[in-house]
Amino acid sequence: MSYQSTDLVSWTDFARTRGELGAAFLRILGYFREDGVKSITAIEEAFRARNAAALVTPAHTLKGESAQFGAYRLSGMAEEIEMTARRCVETREGPDELIETVVALRPCFTETMALLDRDASPLAPRRPATFGRRVDTPATSFGRAG
């Protein structure tokens, strides 16, 4: 379970995605929220039914969409579910060993979305761009030696 030590969000990758998506960013983030809820519901239902095959697709979807936004802990959890479910299908075993990960998936998604929403809000304060100048350097020293 290597995902447990992973940060919830890589802000560098989140910012890259925001830049790449531009004006479509908030709309795509909304799709991620909707798809994420659907994927998690499908994972929970498949797990309750002990249907390893039905775990694979929603876990795969959640894995990729989470990684797109830098949500690597969530992506790691989804990857563990997907890969374990694939092995269970091949060995014809039930996915019982996934109980802890499946139970932790929704709270992780909720916490991750709260962070993404907070940072994505147009009202959220942004980190000031320093353009190579140290933040603690007084603006009055511009152009002066020493």
Rank of each mutant, 00 (worst) to 15 (best):
E34D: 14
P95Q: 02
M77P: 02
A78N: 04
V56K: 06
A49T: 08
V103W: 06
P125W: 09
A53P: 07
E80I: 11
T84F: 03
A49L: 11
A59C: 04
V56P: 04
R86H: 07
A49G: 11
R16G: 09
P125M: 13
D117R: 03
E82N: 05
P95R: 00
R33G: 02
Q68F: 07
C88P: 06
A59N: 05
L74Q: 08
R33F: 05
E100C: 11
L21K: 00
A23H: 04
L55F: 06
L98H: 09
L21W: 00
F109E: 03
C108I: 02
Y72E: 12
L123C: 08
A71N: 05
I81W: 06
E111Y: 02
P95M: 02
A54Y: 02
K38T: 11
D35R: 03
R127D: 09
A67V: 01
E65M: 11
E45K: 13
R33M: 03
D119G: 10
R16P: 07
E79Y: 12
S39P: 03
L115S: 10
A15I: 03
A114G: 07
R86L: 14
L29F: 01
T57E: 15
V103L: 13
F25A: 01
E44G: 12
I99T: 13
P125L: 13
T101Q: 05
G94V: 14
P95T: 01
A124E: 07
S121E: 07
G64A: 02
K63Q: 10
K63R: 15
E44M: 07
V103S: 12
R48P: 09
A71T: 04
A124R: 11
A114V: 09
L21M: 11
R18V: 00
A59T: 04
M83A: 14
F109D: 01
R86Y: 05
A46D: 08
L26V: 10
L115N: 11
E45W: 01
F25T: 00
A49R: 14
T101L: 05
R87L: 12
T112H: 04
E45P: 03
A114C: 04
F25I: 00
V56G: 04
A71Q: 05
